[in-house]
Simulated assay, not measured.
Amino acid sequence: MLDLNDVALFVQVVRSGSFAEAARRLGMPSNTVSRRVQQLETQLGTRLLQRSTRKLTLTQVGQGFYERCVGAVDGLTEAGQELMKGSDEPSGRVRIAAMADFFDFFPMQWVADFLAAHPRVQLDFVLSDARVDLIADRIDVAFRGGPLQDSGYVGRQLIKNDGDGMVASPAYIAKRGAPTSLQDLAHHDSVSFAHPSGLSHWRLIGPDGAEQEVQVPCRFNANTAQAQRKAAVAGLGIAVLPSALSRVDLEAGRLVRVLPQYQRIGFGLNVLYPSRRQLPLAVSAFIGLVMEKLELKAFPARLE
């Protein structure tokens, strides 16, 4: 395999007109430059330069090789200079994986302010409730609920694992009555994630700290917490929602608590990224924004 450094040396020698001048420009000994160009010729199995005491002349093969290489060498040089020039300013594309309803609690204005402050940064959001592979899917930053696991990624908790509580709309409670025990839930409708049995399976912790599992008939399934919230507000059943997500509706009276002495262990929210090493400034800047806005805080009150 050719040593691209030797190819770049060859291009510089041609441009300089001599080994001595190329060595001076590169800050290298002249004999080192000459030796490495000879090594390149040996690898190629052909002479590229005719040497004389007065000047260097390209052979016909050398002329063709130079014309094919000079553009590539210049391109690599310019790319490196561009990177070094922008090394002190966030730039480039940041690919972000987040849950489908991420922008229901992360105001778009925060994104607009970030892009205005960093005009050379591009943000690419991949919104899905499916768990992505950061490496395989080329993800720079990911948001995940649940406890941090030893996945080899760097993780940071942003929102605490507050308990998830049962809620329902006042209209639903007026129509169906308020359950007074976990056993009463069997006679109610729930709003939850889909389950083959057609039942919601909730593991709840009571005031005594004991964990109990209940099964509640489910007539409305949705794969995002935001959709479940809206369904509960519409009176479709009882939902178990993160306190941060239901707080605004509870304060506005659109939802009321159901059996508040029981809670489901909350998932919280974490930010993950592949590695701390050589983290691009654009990625670091975006993580900094997220931590500033969300770290161990409640969700902003921005719900529809």
Score class of each variant (00 low, 15 high):
residue 144 R to D: 14
residue 194 A to P: 00
residue 280 P to N: 07
residue 247 R to N: 13
residue 169 S to G: 06
residue 68 R to I: 13
residue 2 L to Q: 09
residue 206 G to R: 06
residue 148 L to S: 12
residue 83 L to Q: 10
residue 296 L to R: 10
residue 280 P to T: 09
residue 292 E to K: 12
residue 266 G to Q: 09
residue 99 M to R: 07
residue 63 Q to P: 00
residue 15 R to E: 15
residue 285 A to H: 03
residue 89 E to K: 06
residue 183 Q to C: 07
residue 53 T to V: 13
residue 264 R to N: 02
residue 260 P to C: 09
residue 283 V to Q: 11
residue 60 Q to Y: 10
residue 268 G to C: 07
residue 243 S to I: 13
residue 303 L to N: 07
residue 222 A to N: 04
residue 91 S to C: 09
residue 163 G to R: 05
residue 237 G to Y: 03
residue 83 L to P: 00
residue 95 R to P: 00
residue 147 P to T: 15
residue 68 R to G: 13
residue 283 V to S: 08
residue 290 V to F: 05
residue 226 Q to T: 11
residue 109 Q to V: 13
residue 115 L to R: 04
residue 11 V to P: 00
residue 129 D to Y: 06
residue 297 K to Q: 15
residue 242 P to H: 06
residue 11 V to D: 02
residue 51 R to F: 04
residue 100 A to M: 08
residue 24 R to C: 10
residue 100 A to S: 10
residue 233 V to H: 01
residue 109 Q to N: 10
residue 285 A to N: 03
residue 183 Q to K: 11
residue 57 T to N: 08
residue 153 Y to S: 13
residue 154 V to I: 13
residue 191 V to T: 04
residue 258 V to G: 05
residue 209 G to N: 07
residue 74 D to P: 00
residue 36 R to L: 11
residue 263 Q to N: 09
residue 251 E to G: 02
residue 273 Y to F: 13
residue 10 F to V: 02
residue 117 A to K: 06
residue 214 V to F: 01
residue 94 V to A: 05
residue 59 T to F: 09
residue 54 R to V: 14
residue 187 H to Y: 12
residue 89 E to C: 06
residue 39 Q to Y: 09
residue 217 P to L: 04
residue 33 V to T: 03
residue 56 L to H: 04
residue 278 Q to P: 00
residue 233 V to R: 02
residue 67 E to Q: 11
residue 146 G to A: 12
residue 257 R to M: 14
residue 155 G to W: 10
residue 234 A to L: 06
residue 266 G to A: 12
residue 153 Y to L: 15
residue 46 T to I: 13
residue 43 Q to S: 12
residue 12 Q to F: 02
residue 53 T to F: 12
residue 149 Q to S: 15
residue 121 V to M: 03
residue 15 R to H: 10
residue 149 Q to I: 15
residue 172 Y to T: 08
residue 54 R to M: 14
residue 22 A to Q: 02
residue 81 Q to D: 09
residue 244 A to G: 09
residue 111 V to R: 01
residue 288 G to D: 13
residue 202 W to P: 00
residue 79 A to H: 04
residue 221 N to Y: 07
residue 254 R to W: 08
residue 251 E to R: 12
residue 10 F to P: 00
residue 257 R to L: 15
residue 161 N to C: 13
residue 195 H to D: 15
residue 49 L to V: 06
residue 227 A to D: 06
residue 136 A to W: 00
residue 282 A to I: 03
residue 264 R to C: 09
residue 272 L to A: 11
residue 79 A to T: 11
residue 146 G to I: 11
residue 201 H to P: 00
residue 280 P to W: 06
residue 212 Q to G: 01
